[in-house]
C-alpha cells in the first residue's frame, strides 16, 4: 500500500537518509528501529511529504506521493517526534483546531474529540492548557491530534520518548488496539527494542541512513541463530576479563552492562566452562551467569557493533 523506494536526503555534508527501501501493507504494524541520527525522522518527514527527498520516491497505492502529495495527506496521521501542540490552548482546543483543519465540523467534530480523548484517557482534563500538562499527557495529546481524522496509516516517530512507564505502557496498548481492532496500518519508530518487539509484526533496522536489516521479528532473530547471549555477573568489574574473553575464539562481542558483561558467542558446548576458567585465571569472581535467547537489541548489536542507546 505504501512503498518507499531508494529514498535519499542529503544535507550539505551529511547523508541523513541514504537509499531507504521499505513498504507497509494494509493493516500491518511495522517497526522502524535505529539509534540517534540514523535517519528515522528524516525518512518519516519525506514519507509525510513534509520535506522533499534528494532522490527516490514514496508511493501510495502505486501513485507517486512526490508528485501528488494531496493523495496521501488525508489518509496519513503523523505523530511527530516533538510535541507539536499549541501550549497556550487546551487539549480540547488543540484537537478541535486540528480536527477542523481536517475538515471536521459540528456534531461530528465534537463526537470525534470526545472519542479520541477517551482513547488517550484524558477526557477529564481536556480543558486544561497543554502548558500545564505533564510530559506523558502531552505525548498522549500529541498522538490524539494525529487520530482526529481516522487516518488509514499512522506514522509515529518515537511517541514515547522521555515519559513515565505507565504512560508508555498506556500508549503502547492504545497503538496495539488501533492496529488490531481498527485495522490501522502503523509505522512505529523507536529506539526502544522492547516496544517494537511488543507491537510490531515486521521490523526495519536502520543505521547511518541505511536499512541494515529487515524482516519479521523471528527472521531477524534468526540472524543470531548460531549465537547465544550470555550475561556474566561479576563481583567487581574487571577490564582484564574483557581482554581474555575477546581473545576466546567463540566469542564475538563483549559489552559492559550493569554488574557484569554481556557476551555474544557462537553456540558451543563448553563456553560457560571456558568463561569460568578464564575468570579464575585472573581472580575475578563470577557471581552469576545467564544464557539468554537473542533480542532485537542483540541483533542490532551484532549488525552494527553498537548499542541502540547509550
Amino acid at each position: 500500500m505504501l512503498e518507499v523506494e531508494g529514498l535519499k536526503k542529503t544535507y550539505k555534508a551529511t547523508k541523513a537518509v541514504d537509499g531507504v527501501q521499505l513498504y507497509l501493507n494494509h493493516g500491518e504494524s511495522v517497526g522502524l528501529l535505529g539509534p540517534n541520527g540514523a535517519g528515522k525522522s528524516t525518512t518519516i518527514s519525506m514519507m509525510s511529504t513534509l520535506i522533499t527527498p534528494t532522490s527516490g520516491d514514496v508511493r501510495y497505492n502505486k501513485k507517486s506521493v512526490l508528485k501528488h502529495p494531496d493523495i496521501i495527506r488525508p489518509v496519513l496521521g503523523v505523530v511527530p517526534q516533538e510535541i507539536a501542540l499549541y501550549e497556550e490552548l487546551s487539549a480540547y482546543e488543540n484537537m478541535k483546531f486540528f480536527g477542523k483543519i481536517y475538515g471536521l465540523s459540528g456534531k461530528k467534530l465534537e463526537k470525534k474529540v470526545d472519542e479520541v480523548l477517551e482513547l488517550v484517557g484524558l477526557s477529564d482534563r481536556k480543558k486544561e492548557r497543554i502548558k500545564r500538562y505533564s510530559g506523558g499527557m502531552k505525548r498522549r495529546i500529541n498522538i490524539a491530534v494525529a487520530l482526529m481524522h481516522e487516518p488509514e496509516v499512522l506514522i509515529m516517530d518515537e511517541p514515547t520518548v522521555g515519559i513515565d512507564p505507565q504512560s508508555r505502557s498506556y500508549i503502547l496498548d492504545m497503538v496495539r488496539q488501533l492496529n488490531r481492532e481498527k485495522g490501522m496500518t502503523v509505522l512505529y519508530t523507536s529506539h526502544y527494542m522492547e516496544e517494537v518487539e511488543r507491537l510490531c509484526d515486521r521490523v526495519y533496522i536502520m543505521d547511518h541512513g541505511h536499512i541494515i536489516a529487515s524482516g519479521t521479528k523471528e527472521e531477524l532473530k534468526n540472524i543470531l541463530s548460531g549465537e547465544e547471549t550470555v550475561f556474566v555477573e561479576v563481583q567487581q568489574m574487571a577490564p582484564g576479563l574483557v581482554e581474555k574473553l575477546v581473545a576466546h575464539e567463540a566469542i564475538q562481542k563483549v559489552t559492559e552492562v550493569e554488574k557484569g558483561y554481556k557476551v555474544i558467542a557462537t553456540k558451543g558446548e563448553d563456553l560457560l566452562a571456558d568463561i569460568f576458567k578464564l575468570a579464575s585465571t585472573i581472580d575475578v569472581k563470577i557471581t552469576g551467569i545467564h544464557v539468554q535467547t537473542p533480542t532485537l537489541e542483540d541483533v542490532f548489536l551484532h549488525l552494527t557493533g553498537r548499542k541502540l542507546r547509550d
Binding site: S45, S48, T49, L50, P69, D70, R73, P74, L76, V78, P80, E82, I83, A84, L85, Y86, E87, F98, I101, Y102, V145
Partner: peptide, 13 residues
C-alpha cells in the same frame, strides 16, 4: 519552532 507549522503542512494546509 514548536513544530505545529510542520504539523499543519502535513495535514495538507
Amino acid at each position: 519552532e514548536t513544530h505545529v507549522f510542520a504539523r499543519l503542512m502535513v495535514t495538507g494546509e
